[in-house]
Design a binder for these strands. Structure first.
Lengths: 225, 225
DNA sequence: GGATCACTTCGGCGCACGCCGAACCGTCGT
DNA sequence: ACGACGGTTCGGCGTGCGCCGAAGTGATCC
């Protein structure tokens, strides 16, 4: 029965702590069990049990290394699933109660990574600019011009994998689509490599560097937000 | 916290009976509380409680009519959510254990409604034919030719709503995309109206009528499966 | 008006699950 | 070799939830 599988999958997500784990893991990085326990505010033992469930359920993969257990989203398919769920829930309330939380929130809304590509206002701005220049269609499929542009400007060569080159990912703060897929991942990686964007602290939030701001303006006409 | 909302939403789906309800409701029709209780194999009292939860959670809408309580998927957004979840789960095992279940299964795989459009081999065949004729792009976006064709052949005028005209819906038996969105809904309604397809019994399964088979062959070159 | 029917509410049962702290096990630093 | 540390396992507690049957409420049919 397909219903039973659906219920089992949903049960995996139907817990506040596990949901917090998954949201944290949306940055695509590997986290240790202890880090996640802290992030969700539960005891290490509790976190350990949750992680075994998530790994068994196929949502996460783990890598034991010394005395650490690193876990990570199992792949783009799982990331996409979470994106869809978050997209359904829609935009979240804009401000937190404490000043510190609010500042972190603002940073996340300005720009962040979403699994392996850029999201937030920065991600949306880049996507819009690419669409405006005819590099993407309105449905965020890649055009021939876009493919050529990616190759010329960002040294992108499409891999022969099953994963789509360009794909729309619904942003849960902006409620706007932004570029995902291998092209989205490449843009994100490339901007990091050229030091046009930098991680803020250890989280998912990123900020544009001054060189990055001018470079993106020259390249795509993106104006600073 | 967004994680809490995610967990709450997932909890709504994380029950075998409720999942069965939702899958049954994927045909887009309104079901009574009793029908759903039978379909899921639970007592009427149990079904009633589940339905109140699903309605409160926003997944279903209800309409009281005399002594009946009709429930229905709340809208395309909710249907799409379920599609995505089922798409993640992937194709299901092809055969049931009993003969009767297997026959019903075969009928569903051959052709069925998926919320408001056609799915199964029939839905995929129509979509493929439209793509081959340039009416849809490979990503299942509508082309100008497609828009003209829909207007000429099926008297379709695009509504000014926010809902996309054409959209890909991943088929959980065929593991192939087929046409959804307002265009998909129109095709489905139109084929029913012209008696080219007919419901089999009371479920979601549909079959092509002989006139429908020849008509679809003439119109799109679709060959009978 | 009385019987029937669809559905709901309530009480109660049992199970599954989330959580923790304590004990334990490897790994790493010194 | 020792202690500190990250992670896991286990026992136990409380709770939430799915389920049913019995009783109750309206609507419908004759």
């Amino acid at each position: 029965m397909a219903a039973d599988e659906l219920a089992d999958l949903a049960a995996l997500l139907a817990d506040r702590s596990r949901a917090r784990f998954l949201l944290a893991l949306m940055d695509g990085k590997a986290w240790t069990s202890g880090e996640l326990a802290d992030a969700a505010g539960v005891a290490p033992s509790t976190a350990s049990e949750h992680l075994t469930r998530l790994v068994h359920g196929g949502l996460l993969v783990e890598r034991r290394q010394g005395r650490h257990r690193y876990v990570q989203l199992a792949g783009p398919k799982q990331a996409r699933l979470l994106e869809e769920l978050l997209g359904y829930l829609g935009p979240t309330a804009p401000a937190g109660p404490t000043l510190r939380a609010s500042a972190a929130d603002q940073a996340l809304r300005r720009g962040r990574t979403c699994y392996d590509h850029l999201a937030g206002r920065l991600g949306v701005a880049i996507t819009d600019a690419m669409t405006a220049r005819g590099l993407l269609t309105d449905e965020l499929a890649i055009t021939d011009d876009g493919l050529a542009w990616l190759g010329d400007e960002l040294a992108f060569t499409p891999p022969g994998s099953r994963r789509p080159i360009a794909r729309a990912c619904l942003d849960w703060t902006e409620r706007r689509s932004h570029l995902a897929g291998t092209a989205g991942a490449h843009v994100c990686a490339c901007l990091h490599e050229r030091d046009w964007v930098r991680r803020i602290g250890t989280g998912r939030a990123v900020r544009l560097t001054p060189t990055g701001a001018t470079a993106l303006h020259d390249l795509l006409g993106v104006l600073p937000p």
